[in-house]
Simulated scan of single mutants.
Amino acid sequence: MNRRAGNAGPSLRTLAFVESPVQLLNVLEWAHTHALRGVPGAPASGAGAPAPIPAVPPQARRTVDGSAPQAAAELTVVVLSPTDPMTRGQLRRMADLARDEGYEVRWEEARGGTTAPFQTIGGLAGALRRADRIVMGDPFSRYVQLLLTITRARDLVVVDDGTATMEFVAQLARGERLVRWHRKGGRPGPRDLLFAPVSSSARRRLTPRAGRRVEVFSSMPVEEIPDGVAVTTNDFGWTRSRFGPPRITKGADMVGTSLVETGVVDGDRYLEAVRGLAKAHGAARYFAHRRESTEKLHRLAAETGLEIVRPDLPLELIARRGPIGRTVLSFPSTVVHTLPLALAGTGVRIAVCDIDPTWLTDHASPRAQGFLSGVTDTAKDIHRLTAVALA
């Protein structure tokens, strides 16, 4: 695989759009990799900008040499805030960390009512036209695709949004329309058809050509690299330099997934699998995915005895801060690729359990089983993960 580090350059005006805590984490990783620095005390701005929250103990955050960040480049992070309370909470804390790094954070209530999208796009139009570089966490997002029609930036960067990054790069290489993997195979709905011209325009903008640079910054395995796309490896250097090393406990922890919520996996089968793995490996805690429903989590707690933990930061930071179990059990998920990097050198063992085809729902995309198997198979090959199975 040809994975090469690009040179972001110190003088470009950079605008980053994020809609999830993991996207914001990976913007910080990208800025760290390219040595972009901010101005200490950078303000928060935008509608509904949250006040700084002491989300992480000061002693847990540190620069490599103990010094404050030095101003060298401009990076403005625009949070297109979702409505989900768990996601908003994690985003507020990640925004606090971004400000600690000296970057400006612009908080937009992008979904706060019928007129919110128009107000958000109108308010961002000037900054979009002035930006030299656009960084985005989700190229499948209709919001981001619409914003791409406004910008004149010649430098476009896609940072990791989990396993979706693998599918995005493959679709771009094959010239396919941009569709999330768990929806692929279904017929386009009315909204898809209405938005098709914007999506097609975004795909063209994300295709390199003379005078336009496209970079993908990822910790995921990228095999079908489109011509002209620079792929930069995300090794979670920022996370490892600012957090930990963690205290390791003797037991095992489990990582939750939202595959039930996205309609891929049957809820009863998932509960049975969690119960079996927890019993077999002595797991005590279950780190919930931010999209997991409260009803499902209550049922998991009642029927498995697991302690349900709702992390206030992405799991990579939670695990690196610790305490964390000596073994971490996961189903196919982004974390089977990211946790080995974030926890490198700590001795924590990551174990993965494949999704049995019988767990899939009737509504699951025909692509689902192959995609999920690919996520775990590549993680086993690259990170030498342990495979676990239900008895």
Rank of each mutant, 00 (worst) to 15 (best):
F168G: 02
H289E: 06
A110T: 15
A42L: 05
V39F: 07
G322H: 06
S241V: 12
G123Q: 05
L80I: 10
E215F: 04
S218K: 10
R92P: 00
D312R: 14
E303K: 13
A153W: 01
T63E: 08
L297Y: 10
A379H: 01
R133D: 03
E109R: 12
A110Y: 13
R152F: 06
P332D: 08
M86Y: 12
V348H: 01
P314K: 11
T358V: 13
E101M: 13
A387S: 14
E74N: 06
E19T: 14
D96P: 01
H363Y: 04
T376K: 03
G66Y: 08
A55T: 06
A44V: 11
P357K: 12
A73Q: 08
D312H: 12
T14M: 04
V39H: 08
A387H: 03
V274H: 08
G162I: 00
H34S: 02
A173R: 09
L124G: 08
R349A: 01
V79I: 15
A344H: 14
K296V: 10
L339A: 04
R191V: 15
G282N: 07
E272T: 14
D253L: 06
V56R: 03
T358L: 09
L15N: 01
E316W: 07
L91F: 04
P197D: 07
G237A: 15
E176Y: 08
G137D: 01
V231R: 06
T115M: 09
V375H: 02
A31Y: 04
